[in-house]
């Protein structure tokens, strides 16, 4: 089996230092909407100065390089045990090269492992065998500040007056955005999952984030909900960094899953503006990065 360690290292470098163009464009559009001279406009201006600088110098966009979350889809014949080893090696190398901050802390002793390798859950790696001929690895760096403001609610919820329907989902999401204020480094991107169990629901809320920022949900009902939530979250006027302003979220991505008759979970993963994610496709001897 081919050794992909150096390719994984490049994937990590790109994710940490080179913000996807679509996120940058979306931030530029947001900046144009803010009142000139406002704190919100100033915040976005600083953000937009930082992005090309990080890209040019190959330094992290944000110092919190988060939990590296890998989703690897592979054709028959690859060894997930070896792939896991290679990803872990690449992660340690990326840390030594300062693309990643040492972020793996032992929850009992409080000790930082120093190389981003923790137990089986750090970094997070999901594997899935597919029928494709190519191997695809998606990587997301999920920072702590925004992860901390995520939310999961079991519907119905009396306090929010939220029932077990899309109207209830809407209330949960808007409440989560309000509670987050600027703490998740607004403007954020929301990954929302409806249904599942507590675990699968949060998992799906992260998966939803991998959709292109400007795409439309194939389900017309969810597409309408996404549009409405984006618009209404922005009406909260929390603004960039929570300074007040026009743009609180850049987009909302909703995924629906089957659920138990007794459960109706809504899970919200808040992704900060520094939405660092990259993919690599391995096709025979060729490796391309997206």
């Amino acid at each position: 089996m081919r050794d992909l360690t150096s390719s994984f290292l490049e994937l990590i470098r790109l994710a940490a230092t080179d913000l996807p163009a679509e996120v940058e464009h979306s931030l530029q559009t947001a900046q144009a909407r803010e009142a000139p001279g406002s704190a919100a406009a100033g915040a976005l201006e600083t953000i937009l100065e930082n992005v090309p600088l990080a890209r040019q110098n190959s330094t992290p966009v944000c110092q919190d390089t988060g939990t590296p979350i890998f989703y690897v889809k592979f054709p028959e014949g690859w060894s997930t045990r070896k792939l896991r080893d290679q990803i872990r090696q690449a992660t340690a190398q990326a840390t030594a090269l300062s693309y990643l901050r040492p972020n793996a802390v032992d929850s009992v002793s409080g000790k930082n492992s120093g190389n981003n390798l923790g137990d089986d859950y750090f970094p997070t790696i999901h594997f899935e065998e597919t029928e494709e001929q190519t191997l695809t690895a998606d990587l997301m760096l999920k920072g702590g500040g925004c992860e901390n403001v995520g939310a999961q609610v079991s519907l119905p919820n009396a306090q929010l007056g939220a029932g077990r329907d899309l109207g209830g989902v809407r209330k949960v999401v808007l409440d989560a955005v309000h509670k987050a204020q600027g703490k998740g480094c607004a403007p954020g991107i929301l990954g929302v999952a409806i249904g599942g169990d507590r675990g699968s629901s949060y998992y799906a809320s992260k998966e939803a984030l991998f959709r292109p920022l400007q795409d439309t949900n194939p389900d017309p009902k969810l597409a309408a909900l996404e549009e409405q939530l984006t618009d209404e979250a922005n009406q909260l006027a929390i603004g960039p960094m929570g300074f007040g302003g026009e743009t609180t979220v850049l987009g909302v991505k909703v995924k629906s899953m089957h659920r138990l008759p007794a459960s109706f979970f809504v899970s919200v993963s808040y992704m900060c503006w520094a939405y660092r994610h990259r993919s690599m496709v391995v096709d025979g001897a060729d490796v391309t990065y997206i």
């Binding site: 930082n50 944000c62 960094m241």
Partner: peptide
């Protein structure tokens, strides 16, 4: 004082 969250490379300079 509020610094700009995520503007890490710029602030490092």
């Amino acid at each position: 004082l509020h610094a700009i969250g995520g503007a890490a490379s710029l602030i490092a300079q």
